[in-house]
């Protein structure tokens, strides 16, 4: 696919960074404001999907398989279970316990491990949604051939 008109491409260029940053903001403020890993991850995936839609799949040099995002997805969810598993060895030694200092309520760095969980979930969701999108794109290209 070749992508859309120059107008769409230019607007996408201007806006995609903002969308990406907004997604990161939602993920990192998951313990303070509404949203969190899942919502933010979906926004981050949206920014990537927007790029592919505007510029077309040719420019990204898609391979037959969506290896990169698939590996990142597995690593994201693995990071989550490692964080949960680490709790068995630290502090109260209970699975899923919150072993980091809680901090002051309302500050960005507070709530112990929760922000880290949110980041892991954010990576996982962003990569998973993007993988699904890529799989559909690749499937369509193969059908069109």
């Amino acid at each position: 696919m070749n992508g859309m008109t120059p107008i769409v491409k230019k607007v996408t260029q201007l806006i995609v960074g903002l969308i990406f940053l907004y997604g990161i903001y939602i993920i990192t403020h998951g313990h303070l404001t509404p949203g969190g890993g899942f919502a933010g991850g979906a926004v981050v995936a949206g920014s990537f999907i927007l790029l592919v839609l505007a510029y077309g799949s040719d420019i990204l040099k898609l391979k037959k398989r969506e290896e990169g995002s698939s590996v990142v997805e597995s690593l994201g969810i693995f990071l989550f279970i490692v964080l949960a598993f680490a709790a068995i060895f630290i502090g109260t030694k209970v699975f899923f316990a919150n072993y980091l200092p809680k901090g002051v309520i309302g500050e960005l760095i507070s709530a112990g491990v929760i922000p880290l969980y949110n980041i892991a979930v954010g990576i996982e969701v962003a990569a998973a949604l993007f993988t699904i999108f890529l799989a559909l794109v690749i499937y369509k290209e193969e059908v069109l051939k």
Binding site: S70, V71, S74, L75, F78, I81, F85, I88, F95
Partner: peptide
């Protein structure tokens, strides 16, 4: 303390295998 291993180990295996 050994109970959660029934969930942790298969989940860990499932997420490590694709990598």
């Amino acid at each position: 303390p050994l109970i959660p291993l029934y969930v942790i180990l298969p989940l860990g295996a499932a997420f490590l295998i694709p990598v």
